[in-house]
Design a binder for these strands. Structure first.
Lengths: 229, 229
DNA sequence: TCCATACTTCGATGATAGTGGAAATATTTA
DNA sequence: TAAATATTTCCACTATCATCGAAGTATGGA
């Protein structure tokens, strides 16, 4: 009974708390220096280095050397998807402190998931796009309607460019905090990039959480009918 | 950095070779008695029992008591999808024996994946359906064309019943041995059930491998233009 | 050249967890 | 009631592996 691939090998990488913390941190899609990841995982640099080497070796994360820093990041979208799929059936962590509670709230409200928007805001935005007929829903993907073509052009997202990317144009990504789908894939990425470019929201340091600016509140309400309390 | 669910907990379940073997065995979608799973995983019954209890406790597999047997199976489709997603990025196991090599061949050729057809045959069949215009391809799912409606009716698969199931109608499932997609979801399941009912193929004991009957060879060629050498 | 920073490798330690023997429990058959 | 089978619980042994101190390598600045 060993004619199967080594699921255990892959899972073992994620099964260790420090490594899981590092991987989940990297789900923000950015590259982080080793020391930062060590801090986030709550271990000494040596330990983090040990884990990082293991994961690079196993081809799940990639390194880039810049000067005396080494930046680590998730290798590709497929790895990110595996992580999110694990998270979708994972039990929640018990909240112990006030600080943790507010961080938790922030992350659940709006965060990046690899390279697109997730959390309550991600789901709400996706639903707004659906309700207004900008995108349509299919089994496992979203499609852009005729109305959507116009919408995205007006919003200055060039669908031609988005479609050309060597990756899935749009797919549904199961949101672990909302247990509903949000927009992922190249289109989800393009939307997030544009929202950041507009300064409607900004990434927060040290977390995957996203902060909505005053402009963002206004813009989201006017353009997407999404109210931020 | 713990405002995230416990990915490690879930992954730890799969990270242990015996448990991974059990879980992959259960991907055939059937329920198996504990002793059989122990044999498949290559451990003593006590050990298997220990692992099974752990996984039941973690809600990834389910038990059914029938007499002095306890039948274990994957809890739901979501868990199966997580497993397959892990398998899709898992490295292959090195083949050590002749027996292993032939088992490997059989499994790669045709197998069940949770409750639908996978392997070379699964992929070929899916492609045949695509080429003949019975199903259409989308980002992450397949759709049934108008021609398909007729085809499935003639093949005595009632799409109305299939669509009613409380699960995804059809989605693409990444085949780890072929690295291409095959038909999954309720439709994939219905197709497999029908093929078994027609006696075109039969499940082999102890593995996820599927054997094609003489009738099957003929039928697959005539109906799907799929040649079995 | 010297020192500080970023990161890795080495080595010892200690905790965790899988393993299977022995025995208990439950169910079926004789 | 006794014996056989299926599975579990208890328990002790062992191996694996994460961890961190210490020391080593590489880069950048003074």
């Amino acid at each position: 009974m060993n004619v199967i691939p080594n699921a255990a090998k892959v899972a073992a990488l994620v099964s260790e708390p420090s490594r899981a913390a590092i991987l989940t941190a990297l789900l923000d899609g950015r590259f982080h220096p080793a020391s930062e990841l060590a801090f986030m995982a709550g271990v000494k640099p040596q330990t983090a280095s040990f884990h990082l080497a293991k994961m690079v070796d196993a081809n799940v994360i990639a390194v880039e050397k810049h000067g005396r820093h080494r930046y680590y990041g998730i290798r590709d979208e497929e790895v990110a998807r595996v992580m999110e799929s694990i998270l979708s059936i994972a039990p929640p962590v018990k909240i112990k402190s006030l600080k943790q509670a507010s961080e938790d709230r922030a992350v659940r409200f709006a965060r990046t998931c690899y390279d697109h928007l997730a959390g309550n805001l991600g789901v709400k935005l996706t639903e707004s796009l659906l309700n207004s007929g900008v995108i349509g829903e299919e089994e496992n993907a979203f499609t852009v309607t005729k109305k959507g073509e116009e919408f995205f052009e007006a919003f200055q997202i060039d669908l031609k460019v988005v479609r050309k990317k060597r990756r899935s144009f749009s797919h549904k990504c199961l949101d672990w905090s909302e247990r509903r789908h949000h927009l992922a894939g190249a289109l989800g990425n393009a939307l997030l990039e544009r929202l950041l470019e507009l300064n409607w929201m900004e990434r927060l340091p040290k977390t995957r959480a996203i902060k909505i600016t005053a402009d963002g509140k206004k813009g989201l309400k006017e353009t997407f009918s999404v109210e931020i309390e």
